[in-house]
Amino acid sequence: MTSQDILNLLLIGISQGCAYGLVALGFVLIYKATEIVNFSHGEFMMLGGFVSLPLIAFFGFWPGIICAVLAMAVTGFLLDSLVMRRIIGESQASVFILTVAFGFIFRSFAGMVWGWEAIPFPDFFTGSLNVGGLTMRTNRIAIIVATVVLCVLLYAFFSRTKVGIAMQAASQNQLAAYYMSIPVKTLVSVVWALGAAVAAVAGIFNAPFTQVDTHVGGLGLKALAGAIVGGFGSIPGALLGCILIGVMEPFSDLFFPTLKGVSAYALMLVVLFVRPEGLIAQTFAKKV
């Protein structure tokens, strides 16, 4: 195994980690705003891929993608304002069951509408890039770029804009936010919309590799493992954890083929034993 192979695996791992990170980003946002862990987030991602297919066929490639992201944002907004809002204050178990149930509903919906077979997705950028002797598919690089851009945008939104700061306030002290006349309920729905939109981006950018498939939602579980490794409730932590898992996977697949598919969860288990609060604890970096 040459050093070039290692670098190649590393880059693939980083881009895969970014894909997990995009999913994790969405549900950490929702978790921070509502303390609800959205187990249907992987299905949001899957739905984003499916919804983009007819939209791309109708509007063309980029406009179609933008429309798909917007459509998922609306779905997220409605899901909160019509359903999730009513379950606030119920036991964690009910909330868990509800979000899992929505995962099933979304998956069945996609299967009934678009069929259960995987559908190939058009490449974003055909070809590959050659950097210093390293060849990499441009699609892979696109995921990394998308993750970085989204993180910068979200960071700017939460730290610079009035609404973003109000969202932080609502997550830090909900009642006090109400007293400031901040429309907390609406803002929480907007966070759901943001989370769903980010999930849709993840689903679309992943689609060239995974194809559009009803089972893509399983990726959400990997992202969950990544978020737990990094420290649930901290966005930098979640990204770090996901990239860690992404980088680890190709190597463990190579060296321990028997662990294929479970290495992410094995790492999660180890972290939960050794450092249950995650690599970057929430209390250390509680900024949305």
């Binding site: 932080q168 306030a169 830090q172 002290n173 009642l175 006090a176 936010a177 007293y179 509680k286 900024k287």
Partner: peptide, 9 residues
Amino acid sequence: EGREVFPFL
């Protein structure tokens, strides 16, 4: 009661 400022802002 108890201030309730937004601690991390």
